[in-house]
Nucleic acid binder design. Structure first.
Length: 606
RNA sequence: GCGGGUGUAGCUCAGUUGGUUAGAGCGCUGGCCUGUCACGCCAGAGGCCGCGGGUUCGAGUCCCGUCACUCGCGCCA
């Protein structure tokens, strides 16, 4: 007989009754009847009930043993009495009568219970992550993650993509997020940077002629955490393809995304519908107008609109918003459908939410109801509008009897931001979000440049390596800032349920266009040559047109697992302050280590 | 760096308008229990009410500050 087990804890059935078997696992739960002791034995695969009688010499040991101790038990498998069967357990028809017991590992009193999976403070869960990982929910999430990655890999390879590994110790990139730096012992005063993404490497692989690249790529960015952003490191399905148009990239990645989501849609036990390919495409500009951001949650059936014009019509007396519009600002309308029966407090709460959560001046609103003379506006600010203006505004916003409009006013960036947040909040408050669908879309036609308010200059709005739509001609003809800001890039995002899963682009593979684009953003030729020397040089020796995308794997798994926090799908995550509480990282290092690296600490005074 | 929320037993939480000895459930320890599967019953231990200051005859409760966690903003090519 095997030293530890003849079966796992989810294997034995009635057919095995009469066999002498051996199981190993953790003591999940004990039910001590004094004269009879039940043990639920757990391993990765499941649970099997074991029973021991007081005559057995091991009874006293088992009775004293704490839960989560690891044991090996052997004995005869028996049928349970008819009324003692447990229908909730796959192994519920049988039980193991313990004859022999070996205690493999005694558990002390636990800082975190496994059984029952009660809510526990996250710092304790993170410190004792291995205990948390024994819990079924988290255990299943991590298994799901492995299966998702395997599915992705299979699908990419089937499409002719080749998998690569790119360096972890590499060069700092002057664009983007803050880098993690690694000092070089052999090169005093110099530093490696951990890659924020294998961006340049994958483009260089296209220059190398590999045609189709992918990697389950670790990415490192020194940025603050969010619910859907783990600090430090995360994984992308990084892919790139040669001689590809934007539509080719979409056609390659859409079936992978839709396929993986369909494959695991039932993971939570519910049936969840996935957007059919091709996914809808929404221009960046339209998304900002209709949804208030570039990552719309399409589960919320609310479309916003610009209503600035109505506030400066003759006869409108609403001075606050009038001033905003005349001063170059914007008023956006966010419909709140079917709110006829909502109490006044609903609207007041939304206003309070805007002030508290968004630090906005507030959210005005008008309720619309069908009256004797047609659609009428109600609410504190309705009286400032002539009746016909309200009717036309309602038509413009696409709402009618029983609906309301909230107003977000201010500078355009602020109004848009409040619009997006308010749309999501209304969706939540009105229970408009269907948890059982995955609604995908593409956001396309991102602007190439944006106005950098801090430095009062034009800068790249996303990836400086994107190809402008219109190529060299459009760059050369853009002789004013306004024209420059109108230039679009072959830059796109894939969004699911309001979560940005990835961004990608058709790259700029032409050195002449690259120099020109960088010049427009204020970087001279020398800066490009020094900061992107590897890539710009490579492009001078024959570079194929190419493009790609990099969906975030953690976020995909999060959606599939139904997790509301990214730490629920990462096996050993750091906390919000970028600390690993289990391994004690980051940590101080011995002075010798610093000397070898030619470093001296200059810590902030306390 | 900024804003919101939370902070009472190991954990989840209750704690009235400021009032005398701060409670419950789970867990833990001990005892009882031969068919449980959230086993049951009895008993017990366990509290810097996050920390510091203030108001008050009196603070878990009110005020100020601070720390921790968390969500968001900034940031995230």
């Amino acid at each position: 007989m095997h030293a530890y087990r003849t079966h796992n804890c989810n294997e034995l059935r009635s057919d095995n009754v009469g066999e002498t078997v051996r199981l190993s696992g953790w003591v999940h739960r004990k039910r001590d009847h004094g004269g009879l002791l039940f043990i639920d034995l757990r391993d990765h695969f499941g649970l099997t009930q074991c029973v021991i009688e007081p005559e057995n010499k091991h009874f006293a040991v088992l009775e004293r043993l704490r839960v989560e101790s690891v044991i090996t038990v052997s004995g005869k498998l028996v049928d349970r009495l008819a009324d003692a069967k447990n229908k909730n357990l796959p192994t519920g028809d049988i039980e193991l009568v313990v004859a022999d017991l070996e205690v493999q590992s005694r558990a002390e009193e636990l800082p975190l219970p496994v059984f029952g999976e009660p809510d526990y403070p996250e710092d304790i869960r993170l410190k004792y992550r291995y205990l948390d990982l024994r819990r079924q929910k988290l255990h299943n999430n991590i298994i799901l993650r492995g299966q998702v990655i395997n599915s992705i890999r299979t699908r990419m390879i089937a499409q002719g993509f080749n998998e690569f590994q790119t360096p972890i110790l590499t060069a700092s990139s002057p664009e983007g997020a803050r880098d993690f730096l690694v000092p070089s012992r052999l090169n005093p005063g110099k530093f490696y940077a951990l890659p924020q993404a294998p961006q340049q490497f994958k483009q260089l692989l296209m220059v190398s002629g590999f045609d189709k690249y992918f990697q389950i790529a670790p990415c490192f960015r020194d940025e603050d955490a969010r619910a859907d952003r783990s600090p430090g490191e995360f994984y992308q399905l990084d892919m790139e393809m040669s001689f590809a148009t934007q539509e080719d990239v979409f056609a390659a990645i859409e079936p992978v995304m839709a396929g993986v989501f369909e494959e695991f849609a039932a993971h939570t036990g519910k049936t969840r519908k996935v957007t059919q390919t091709p996914f809808p495409r929404i221009a960046y500009k339209d998304s900002m107008l209709k949804y208030g951001n570039d990552k719309p949650d399409l589960r919320i059936d609310i479309i916003c609109s610009d209503v600035s014009e109505f506030f400066i019509e003759d006869g409108v007396e609403f001075k606050a918003f009038q001033g905003i519009v005349k001063g170059g600002g914007t008023v956006r309308a966010i419909p709140a459908p079917n709110t006829k029966d909502k109490p006044r407090s609903f609207f007041d709460k939304m206003n309070g939410w805007a002030q508290r959560e968004m630090q906005a001046p507030g959210l005005g609103y008008i309720r619309f109801e069908q009256g004797e003379n047609g659609l009428e506006g109600k609410g504190p600010i309705a009286k400032f509008f002539p009746a016909d203006v309200l009717v036309r505004m309602a038509a413009h916003a696409g709402i009618g009897d029983g609906d309301a409009l909230f107003f977000a006013a201010g500078k355009e960036v602020d109004a848009v931001k409040l619009t997006g947040a308010a749309r999501a909040e209304i969706g939540r408050q009105l229970d408009m979000i269907d948890e059982d669908v995955f609604k995908f879309c593409w956001i396309v036609d991102f602007p190439m440049f944006e106005w950098d308010e801090d430095n009062k200059k034009i800068d790249f709005s996303h990836n400086p390596f994107s190809m402008p739509q219109g190529g060299m001609e459009i760059l050369q003809s853009a002789d004013t800032d306004v024209k420059k800001l109108d230039i679009l890039a072959y830059q796109y995002d894939i969004v699911c349920n309001g979560i940005e899963l990835s961004s990608g682009a058709i790259r700029n593979h032409r050195p002449d266009i690259m120099y020109k684009a960088f010049a427009m953003a204020g970087y001279d030729r020398d800066a490009v040559d020094s900061e992107f020397s590897g890539m710009i040089t490579a492009f001078k020796y024959g570079a194929p047109p190419h493009g790609g995308i990099a969906p975030g794997i953690d976020r995909m798994v999060m959606l599939l697992a139904g997790a509301d926090n990214i730490r629920e799908v990462i096996v050993f995550p750091m906390n919000g302050s970028a600390q690993d509480l289990m391994m004690n990282a980051p940590a101080e290092v011995p002075a010798k280590a610093l000397r070898e690296l030619h470093l001296r600490l200059d810590l902030p005074k306390e």
